[in-house]
Every structure is written in C-alpha cells, then in structure tokens.
Design a binder for these strands. Structure first.
Length: 215
DNA sequence: ATCCCGAGGG
DNA sequence: CCCTCTGGAT
C-alpha cells in the first residue's frame, strides 16, 4: 500500500468507529491485565462470561491471591488453557502485591516479566490502560496486515515493526483496535467478507480472496 | 517445534 | 468433523 492508501485505510476505519475500545469487560487496570491474559487463544465473549462473576468479587491482586489457584479455576474452567492461565494469574498477582504495591506497572519491560504476560499482552495493556502507541500483533492483526499488504512480516514482531513505521501519527493509538475489529468482523480468517469491506479498493489481496471464495 | 486446552462456528 | 479465537512458556 502507498502512503496515501494507508492514510485513507485508517481514515475510513476511524470514521466508521470514532472511539474504538476493547470488547473485554473490566473495571480497573488490574482486571484488564487479567482479562487479557485469559483471552489468549480464546474469544472475548467467552472471557467476559467467566470474568463477570470473578470480577464482582475480585478487584485487586490481593483478593486474587486470597481466592487462590483452585478457586480461580472454578471461575475460568470454560476458557481454553485454563490450568496454565490460573497458575499464571495467581503468580503475577503475587508479584504485583510483593513488588508493585498492588498496582499494574505502566512499563512494557516490567509487564513482560510477569508470568503469562508476553509482548502481545503487554502491548495491549500499554495501549488500552495507558494510551501508549503500541501495536499488539495478535492473530487478527497478523492476518490483516499481511493480507492487505499494510504490514507484511513472517513473525508478529516483524509485523509490529512495520506498523510502527507505517501507521500515520493521528491513528497510532487507535490502530490496534481498528485492525482487531476489522479482522474480527470483516476480514475474517476463514471467510473474509470483502463484499462489505470499507477498504476493499485499497487491498492487494482482494482479487485473490474473492477468487478463492468462488471455488 | 510443541504443549497447554475449551467453546462456538461453518 | 475441522478451524478459529486479541499466546505464552518450555
């Protein structure tokens, strides 16, 4: 995509959704962090279903530690990978209590040190909680970036670096959400709905995708 | 490279 | 059935 196409790409997505937010439900930054950890390889809908009751009683890392690993498992049993996630959430909560006064650090390097938190999760928290210009390259953004030609790369990190270079300044904070929503609802993995895509004319894989659907 | 692991959709 | 869903740790 040309520089002008990229600007137009985000201009349109921004116009359709002026104030994009994560679809994960949370009441504070700590709950956001937990929700994002739970969302790995899971849908937001599924995570929200589990956290609704959990976050009613657990609002701080100290309360999570008090709940305990087995107690947490009862809440998140319906989410994939729940054993590893329960262990990580308890462990990271213990660290927040012991080392950060129960607060979530506004620092990516510190976040990545927490168990269960990788670069992608840290980037989501930095963006959603602290308004940082970070790009959390998940399955959606990786696919949309490569498919459209906006940000091509063989690894999520490579795509992230491309986005940092190519996303125009006015869209850097919102780009993460716009790309996620676009990937989730229109540029879907299996059946991209190009016929109702607002940026189809800017996409280099349009013909390929439409042809594939015809088969 | 492989394992963790459940719900919903096509 | 098989694929996908805002991955991370080993």
């Amino acid at each position: 995509m040309t520089k002008a196409d990229i600007f137009e790409f985000f201009r349109r997505l921004a116009e359709l959704n002026p104030a994009p937010e994560t679809e994960l439900e949370f009441g504070n930054t700590y709950q956001l962090l937990v929700a994002v950890v739970l969302s790995a390889q899971a849908t937001d809908v599924g995570v929200n279903k589990a956290t609704r009751a959990l976050f009613h009683s657990v609002k701080t890392p100290a309360q999570m530690v008090a709940l305990g690993e087995d107690g947490l498992k009862q809440h998140i049993k319906t989410i994939g990978l729940f054993n590893a996630k329960a262990r990580n959430v308890i462990a990271l909560s213990e660290i927040l209590v012991a080392q950060y006064g129960g607060e979530v650090p506004a620092d990516r390097d510190a976040l990545v040190e927490l168990p269960g938190v990788g670069r992608k999760t840290a980037n989501v928290v930095m963006n959603c909680a602290f308004g940082a210009e970070t790009f959390a390259v998940d399955t959606h953004i990786f696919r949309v970036g490569n498919r459209t030609g906006l940000a091509k790369g063989k690894t999520p990190l490579a795509v992230e670096k491309q986005l940092e270079k190519k996303v125009p300044a006015p869209f850097r904070v919102g780009a993460h959400h716009w790309l996620i929503l676009h990937g989730r609802y229109i540029c879907k993995a299996r059946t991209p709905e190009c016929w109702r895509c607002p940026v189809v004319d800017l996409c280099r894989f349009k013909d390929k995708v439409l042809e594939k659907r015809g088969k």
